[in-house]
């Protein structure tokens, strides 16, 4: 079960990061990247948690901080890059 979760997270990582190589807008990349990074990382940490439950407080903390901070970072990056785009269009 733990191996399944870790490999699932790895596949999510590879899938989301491969979108970085395409020539799309930053917003599109950001969407796939934040989904894959957050979900994939949470899957990997859950797999680790399943494997070694002894270190649960740290791993739970990692999951919580991943869920909160990665979403917020994604939002801030989207806000910054999109406002930059609209300004260049105005000029």
């Amino acid at each position: 079960m733990s191996y399944f979760l870790i490999i699932f997270g790895l596949i999510l990582w590879l899938w989301g990061t491969s979108y970085l190589l395409s020539k799309r807008s930053p917003l599109y990349k950001l969407h796939s990247l934040s989904v894959s990074d957050t979900l994939g990382s949470i899957a990997i940490v859950m797999g680790l948690l399943w494997k070694i439950p002894r270190e649960w407080p740290l791993l739970v903390l990692a999951i919580i901080s991943l869920a909160i901070w990665n979403t917020m970072l994604g939002y801030v990056l989207a806000y910054c890059s999109s406002s930059n785009k609209s300004n260049t269009v105005d000029e």
Partner: peptide, 26 residues
């Protein structure tokens, strides 16, 4: 901004790698 995306991705990936290795080594 593409560079910033790459950096954000790398930083979270390295942190997860550190966690993974630490759990492996207990």
């Amino acid at each position: 901004w593409q560079k910033m995306l790459a950096v954000a991705s790398i930083s979270s990936k390295t942190a997860i790698l550190i966690l993974f290795i630490s759990v492996l080594r207990d």
